[in-house]
Design a protein around this nucleic acid. Structure first.
Lengths: 192, 192
DNA sequence: GTCTATAAATGGATAGAC
DNA sequence: GTCTATCCATTTATAGAC
């Protein structure tokens, strides 16, 4: 059983992680220190070591949490209706997830933190997300790996351009639906 | 006239920049210190200040150099022949440039270095690259901004996936030509 | 132009009292 | 579980001798 003490401990852990996410968003993924985290949660830096073994352990927990959020995000996509609609929904869902937090994107999808490698447990979550995406595509009849790879590249590219070149705008967001049509036309041509 | 002293100074500057690029590639874009740079060029750290005012000034010089390389890379693309061929060439050129140095990509296209903002002079080079890309597309009859934006997203997405998920491989490189065909088919459908 | 010496701050992390 | 105190390394950057 998780007693009161364990629940409190976990709550504080979450509070710390919440503070690191906030710092990562405002000061950059690598632009914060343990002292700043401690200050944000009204502690002294050494107290953080009661919850995380090291700064990299915090990054690892953020990595895992980010992929859990992605899994929930993907899991929330209805898979009913016409394949075109499912694809459109998933495109917007993926785009929104990416654009919502560019620090999270840098942590999950790029290799930005010097020296940081996710633990095997955390990496398993990343693999799970890949599997879930593949399952989504299989459900609407797209099962070639190349197709999924192309779709992933297309969507991550749109989102990356949006974040980097038009933050807060919709210059690339408006291209999602045309991109889905382009992709589908190409898929139908390949399949038929 | 640039006398011997000025030429020597510039040569040393280049040597320093070369060392920082190497460090950025091996230890991450933000994973190196001035001491390491100095050691690599057989100096002491304070001597670097004879060539650059600060670490951010080095990042700025790298930023400018990266865009100069991109401009040269784009300029080297022959624009003769069938539009499909020009597009294919430019796709491979862009992909190769991106994949060749992921630290450079992070510096030029993402906001990875905490606190770093390119100077106006350096940013002008970035704008020049955008203009040159637009000119290339105009030359083959693609002049809608949305088309160029979609193409940029598609190629940067392919390259990003290649670097992040299959470094050293060709899983996404093999999708370049199919992606060009997909893009062209969509463009022809829009135009005609 | 490069050095030594050092400032002045900050980093992650540990020891040990309470 | 959190603190103070501190270690020890490292950071960027400056002063001033040579």
């Amino acid at each position: 059983m998780t007693d009161r003490r364990a629940r409190r401990h976990e709550a504080t852990r979450q509070e710390i992680l919440s503070a690191t996410w906030q710092l990562a968003r405002t000061k950059g993924l690598t632009g914060w220190s343990l002292r700043e985290v401690a200050q944000a949660v009204d502690m002294r830096a050494p107290s953080l070591y009661g919850y995380f073994d090291s700064k990299d352990a915090i990054y690892d927990a953020m990595f895992a949490q980010g992929y859990q959020q992605l899994l929930e995000h993907l899991g929330g996509i209805p898979t009913d209706g016409h394949p075109r609609e499912v694809l459109r929904r998933s495109a917007h869902a993926f785009f929104d997830f990416y654009v919502a937090d560019s620090a999270r994107h840098q942590l999950l999808f790029l290799r930005v933190v010097p020296g940081f490698e996710p633990s095997v447990e955390s990496y398993a979550l990343a693999q799970e997300a890949v599997d879930q995406l593949r399952a989504l595509f299989a459900a609407i009849g797209i099962d070639r790996r190349e197709s999924v790879d192309l779709w992933t590249a297309l969507l991550s590219g749109l989102a990356s351009q949006q974040v980097s070149n038009d933050p807060g705008g919709d210059r690339w967001a408006r291209l999602i639906d045309p991109a889905v049509e382009m992709f589908l036309a190409s898929e139908l041509a390949s399949a038929g």
